[in-house]
Write a protein that binds this DNA or RNA. Sequence first.
DNA 1: GACCAATTGAACCATCCAGTACATTTTAGC
DNA 2: GCTAAAATGTACTGGATGGTTCAATTGGTC
Lengths: 223, 223
Amino acid sequence: MNQIARPPAPPPVARKSSSWTQDPEGVRRGILAVAREEFVEKGLSGARVDEIAARTATSKRMIYYYFGDKEGLYRAVLEEAYARIRNFERSLDLAGLPPREAIARLAGFTFDYHADNPDFVRLVMVENIHHARHLESSSKIGELNLSAIDMIREIYERGLAAGVFREGLDPIDIHLTISALSFYNVSNQASIRQVFGHDMAAPEARIRRRDSAIETVLRMICR
Amino acid sequence: MNQIARPPAPPPVARKSSSWTQDPEGVRRGILAVAREEFVEKGLSGARVDEIAARTATSKRMIYYYFGDKEGLYRAVLEEAYARIRNFERSLDLAGLPPREAIARLAGFTFDYHADNPDFVRLVMVENIHHARHLESSSKIGELNLSAIDMIREIYERGLAAGVFREGLDPIDIHLTISALSFYNVSNQASIRQVFGHDMAAPEARIRRRDSAIETVLRMICR
DNA sequence: GACCAATTGAACCATCCAGTACATTTTAGC
DNA sequence: GCTAAAATGTACTGGATGGTTCAATTGGTC
């Protein structure tokens, strides 16, 4: 509910005043926001369409009107989440930095994105429980692929040329390491707390883990 | 179905033959095995008690007789999974190895355990989706805590004394890094395949990722 | 071979829940 | 203003689902 930047909703056409006051885009966004919270909290099968509808400003009827069925709604939520992280990745501008700094900042930003968006992390968990079937059927997410991996490849090659990175590494492997170190503390936060009594969401713990992750990635890559 | 080492089921008391042939322990185990598969595949809310019952040699009635309700059954599955990894950890004998070898083998074994037991990984994902509520209510899993972390602490201190490890590291941090690098490829296997077209379960990919994880852990810890 | 507790079978139930039917209101174009 | 299409409200349904009832069968003990 808080990480949705809901712009002031510029009504393209004048807004009449009456009993009803219709606003399709707003309704859509409203449904999506509530749906995301529910799916993130209870999973795809755990979430209840009635519950989502109840927490919305509109009715269950509208959910089916706009999204077809429960899976369509889930898919829309998933696509929005992936679109958002793709935007985040595109917003990174690391080309100007020296390789070592670039990787460090990429790792730091990635860590922060995961820590700041547990909803995204939990959605990805849910989707993986379902064997990523919906990622498959939905819009080709392949663009993610390029942006993230190519960015790493570019930095890595610059680092090789500059002689600061060790040779023989795979950009995908680097990406997996950064992702794993960013994802795990968030995805497994609850069980870590339960088993080790450590709250990874606490500011100090998070900062220390962040530093450790960056350091680990640098040590992995640097000569 | 394959990663459960089901010992030859030594019937402590003789087995009679009759129309019915009652065997509580066997029934229990049978239910648990099917239930694990279902929960792992569909999650807690996605799994259906009727479906579990149908795949069992016995009936739904027995599930409720032995486990009370769906959550009780889930809890039993969860406890069994954690008991199993605790056994695995206890079975590791690294005290005799030089520190560097010990950490490398710990990382390798941990990686292999996760890769060989995707059921465990998926169960932990499911449990985290549910905020580890059932880990909390079930038998104190705190013993895990000790065994895993203390083992690392012991190795780490030997490594410090030998001058091969760098100072200032937290055993929990080391554990989290090893776990993250072991867990992520399995938990996110489906989305990795979907987004990057890489199959982490393929033998070559797995071996390369394993080597990379071990190397990364060593570089993280060693001076 | 009788008795009791443990174990099992078959049918049943109350509720939940995804999805729909049908009517109604709103907006936009003329 | 009139009309068609888009958007919304209300009420409902049929099947799925977790859980239960009641009785029957078994194994051990005496």
